[in-house]
Amino acid sequence: MADSFIKESIITCPECAHQETEKMPIDTCQWFYECKSCGAVIKPKLGDCCVFCSYGSVACPSIQLKKEN
């Protein structure tokens, strides 16, 4: 069951719309992400646990696993 989640997400910068495929941390939420194109430091939207939940193509592993239960 622990491997039944998507491990990569396409994160989209809200400043310049650059997209990058990133491997998500499995055991923690990622609070900040620096865009590889414009250098903007991205933070989660209010109410989201991490940048992948706010700007990724899929939610982070912890949210994915909660939805399975």
Rank of each mutant, 00 (worst) to 15 (best):
A2Y: 15
A2R: 14
S4K: 13
F5L: 08
I6L: 04
K7Y: 06
K7D: 07
K7T: 15
E8L: 01
E8C: 01
E8T: 08
S9H: 11
I10T: 13
I11E: 02
I11G: 00
I11R: 01
I11C: 02
C13G: 01
C13H: 01
C13F: 02
P14H: 09
P14I: 04
P14Y: 06
A17W: 08
A17E: 13
H18V: 00
H18K: 04
H18Q: 04
Q19T: 03
Q19A: 02
E20N: 10
T21W: 01
T21M: 00
E22Y: 03
K23F: 06
M24I: 13
M24F: 09
P25V: 04
P25D: 06
I26T: 15
D27A: 10
D27Q: 09
T28I: 07
C29R: 13
C29L: 10
C29A: 13
C29W: 14
C29M: 12
Q30F: 07
Q30H: 07
F32D: 10
F32I: 09
F32W: 12
C35D: 09
C35P: 08
K36L: 05
K36G: 12
S37T: 07
S37R: 06
C38Q: 03
C38T: 04
G39T: 07
G39K: 05
A40P: 06
V41L: 10
V41H: 12
I42S: 03
I42E: 03
P44A: 08
K45S: 10
L46N: 12
L46D: 14
G47F: 06
D48I: 04
D48Y: 10
C50S: 08
C50G: 07
V51R: 02
C53K: 02
Y55K: 00
G56L: 03
S57Q: 03
S57A: 07
A59D: 14
A59R: 14
C60A: 08
P61V: 00
P61K: 03
S62Q: 12
S62T: 11
I63F: 04
Q64H: 08
L65C: 10
L65I: 12
K66V: 10
K66A: 14
E68D: 07
E68Q: 12
N69V: 08
N69G: 13
